[in-house]
Structure formats: C-alpha cells, structure tokens
C-alpha cells in the first residue's frame, strides 16, 4: 500500500514533485470540505467550495505536469480551465440565490433555511 503516511512524509523531504502537489491539494480539499460543513454563513460555504474546486485544479495541473500522460495532450490544463469557468458560473448562480434569499428573509444563514423537512 503505497499510500502510507510514513511514505508520504519521507518523500516530502525530497525536491518538489508530484507528491508535494498532491498532498497540498488533498489538504486544501479537506480544508474546503471542513469549511463547507462547518460554516453557517452561506457565503462562507460558497468560499469553502471554491477551495475544494481549486484543490481539484491543483491536482489536475500537477498531474498534467508530473503524471503519466503525454505533455502535448493538454487534457489536464483544459480540464482545469473549464473547472475555473464552471466555478465562476456556480458562484454566480449561488450568489444570485443567496442574494434573493437575503432580500426575502434578511438572512444568509444556511441553517435558518429549514421550512422544508420530513
């Protein structure tokens, strides 16, 4: 199991490579996920979401740079660019929803929105 913590820590001492990027991305993703789950403010959740998406981008670009695929095939790059675009679209839609909600209920607290249940 090449996934063990010891392995990872050991390789982190070496020059910057795929491992570093992946660990960074994983940590970023975890931070984002933690933020999503703990923030009460909807805008905060949105920001945490951006962290998760950026972790993905870091992953993609790192894999493109160090991964097994041919460097000429720009798959990873293209994927990352598209993810950025999508993140923008998602943020726009999310902010619009949150704005409308704020106008209507004077709150951006995701937990107070619980009319629907059961």
């Amino acid at each position: 199991m090449g996934f063990m913590l010891g392995d990872i820590l050991e390789s982190l001492g070496q020059p910057v490579g795929l491992r570093h990027c992946l660990v960074f991305a994983a940590l970023l993703f975890a931070v984002g996920l933690y933020g999503v789950l703990t923030r009460r403010n909807a805008i905060g959740i949105l920001m945490a979401l951006e962290l998760m998406l950026n972790a993905v981008n870091a992953n993609l670009v790192a894999f493109w740079r160090y991964g097994p695929g041919p460097r000429e095939a720009l798959n990873g790059q293209v994927f990352a660019v598209f993810v950025i675009t999508m993140a923008a679209a998602e943020a726009a839609v999310g902010l619009a929803i949150i704005l409308a909600l704020f106008r209507l209920r004077r709150t951006v607290n995701a937990d107070e929105v619980n009319l629907l249940k059961g």
């Binding site: 993905v56 894999f63 991964g67 097994p68 695929g69």
Partner: peptide, 13 residues
Amino acid sequence: LFGMSLIYGLTGA
C-alpha cells in the same frame, strides 16, 4: 471532480 482528477492523474487520459 476530485475523483475525476485522480482518475485522470493515474492514467493520464
């Protein structure tokens, strides 16, 4: 998306 990035990373395709 995270899952997809891993799959891409492992295969390069």
